[in-house]
């Protein structure tokens, strides 16, 4: 992993964090509320988690099995949260 890739990953992660914060602060006025906000937050969270796993943890050049375990964990947790959110809407 070279420094440029690490720096780009860091910038994207910071911007994504600002996006998450903005959804919490002004999401309602932007029309990003309810299920749309939940979906946006989970997508941002997955993108961030993927960058940490692939670039910071150095799994990008490793066999898919290991990447699959971490990305699978992210997908599983996101799915559980989405299902629970959907149940709460009923």
């Amino acid at each position: 992993m070279n420094t440029r890739q690490l720096n780009i990953a860091w910038v994207i992660l910071i911007l994504a964090t600002l996006a998450t914060f903005a959804i919490g602060e002004i999401g309602d006025s932007l029309g990003i509320a309810g299920p749309l906000a939940m979906a946006s937050l989970l997508v941002i969270s997955f993108i961030k988690g993927r960058l940490v796993a692939l670039d910071f943890m150095g799994l990008r050049g490793v066999k898919f099995f290991w990447r699959g375990l971490l990305l699978g964990w992210l997908l599983l947790v996101s799915s559980l949260i989405a299902i629970a959110y959907w149940i709460a809407l009923k």
């Binding site: 919490g24 937050l41 959110y85």
Partner: peptide
């Protein structure tokens, strides 16, 4: 990095999602 990864899910879930 794992500690970071966990917080990346925790923050939106607990502080933001409603």
């Amino acid at each position: 990095h794992m500690v970071d990864l966990v917080w990346i899910v925790l923050f939106p879930l607990v502080y933001v999602m409603r």
